[in-house]
Simulated assay, not measured.
Amino acid sequence: MQSKKKKDVIREEPLTYEDYASLADDGVQYELADGILQAMTPAPHPIHQLVSQELAYQLKQGCKNEYILFVAPIDLILSKHEVRQPDLLLLHTSKSELVTNRGIEGSPDLVVEILSPSSMKRDRKDKLDTYAKYNIPEYWLIDPVQKFLEQYILNEAIYELNEVYMHDETIKSCHIKCAAFSMNTIFNAIPEFPNL
C-alpha cells in the first residue's frame, strides 16, 4: 500500500529535463511546458517550413557576425521543467556558453514562432507567457497565411506588441539591429504551389 502511494506521488510530480531527454523516440516531437509533456503534432505545413528556411536565410545573411542562429528542432532549456522547441532563435555570440550538448540552456536574444492552426493558441498565449517569464527580450510571431510579423518586446516581464510588419515594411529591432528585411522579401522567395 505504501509503495503504491509513493508511486502515485512520483507520477504527480512535474517532469524534468532528464525525463524529457530519456523519452523513447516515437517519431513525435515534444515540448516540456512547466513540467507537462506536450506533443507537437501534426507536422508543420510545407509553407511553414519554407517560411522558416527563408527567414533563417535572411537572419543568417544579416546577423552572422553577431548572432548564432538555431532552427528547429533544438531544445531550448529554460529550466528543469521548461523545455521549448522554437522554430528559430538567435543567440548573441557573447552568450555562446549557453550552447551545450543538451541544447541551448538559458534565454536567447530572440525567439521566433511561425503560426499554424494546431499551434496558434500555444504560440500566442502559452509560449508568449513562458518566453516573457524567462526574460527573452524579443519574440516574433509570423503568420504565414496573412503574411505578417508581430514583434513583441519585453517590458518589465511582460511582452508588449511593438509593431506589426507587412508587405515592404523593413523589420527593425532595437535588440536585433542586424535584422533588415521585409515580409515581401520572405514570401516573394517562396514559389506558388498548385495544390496548396
Rank of each mutant, 00 (worst) to 15 (best):
K6G: 08
D25H: 12
V145T: 15
Y139K: 10
I47R: 10
L32V: 06
L59H: 11
G27T: 12
F187D: 04
L115R: 01
K95V: 03
I142T: 03
I158C: 00
Q151N: 12
A33G: 01
L88I: 03
H175E: 12
A56D: 08
I186V: 04
L69P: 04
S94P: 04
F70Q: 08
P117I: 12
E169D: 13
H167Y: 12
K95P: 05
P42L: 07
S96L: 13
Y30P: 02
A56I: 00
K172A: 13
W140Q: 09
E150V: 08
M40G: 03
L196N: 13
N184R: 09
E18D: 13
H48V: 01
Q85T: 07
T16S: 15
E138R: 06
K80V: 11
S182M: 05
E66C: 03
N184I: 06
L50F: 04
N184S: 07
L23R: 10
T185S: 13
R84N: 00
Y17N: 06
G106Y: 02
I158H: 13
S3W: 09
I104D: 00
N101S: 11
D19Y: 09
N195S: 14
I142H: 03
D75L: 07
H81Q: 14
P14Q: 12
Q2I: 11
Y134P: 05
T16M: 03
T41D: 00
E156W: 12
E113Y: 00
V111Y: 04
K121N: 12
V9T: 15
G27S: 04
I171N: 10
Y131C: 01
F181M: 08
V51Q: 05
Y17A: 07
T170W: 15
D87F: 02
T16A: 11
I47Q: 10
T100N: 01
I153K: 14
S3C: 06
K133T: 07
N188G: 09
E160L: 14
F70E: 05
H81W: 05
Y30Q: 00
R84V: 03
V71Y: 08
I68G: 02
P14E: 11
N155L: 14
T41V: 09
V145Y: 15
H48S: 06
P108A: 11
H92T: 13
T170F: 15
T41G: 07
T41N: 00
M166W: 10
M120F: 06
G62H: 15
S116D: 00
E66Q: 12
S79Q: 03
K172H: 14
G106P: 08
P137S: 00
H45T: 12
N155E: 15
T93K: 15
N65H: 15
A21C: 05
D143I: 06
E163I: 14
P46F: 07
L78C: 09
K4N: 10
H45I: 06
E97D: 12
H175N: 14
I186A: 02
V164S: 11
P194V: 12
P42M: 07
L115H: 02
D87I: 01
L149A: 09
S118E: 01
M183N: 01
E113G: 08
D109H: 07
Y20V: 08
E18N: 13
E163V: 14
S107V: 03
R124F: 01
P42Y: 02
P46T: 10
N135E: 02
E160N: 14
F181N: 05
N101Q: 15
A179Q: 14
S22P: 08
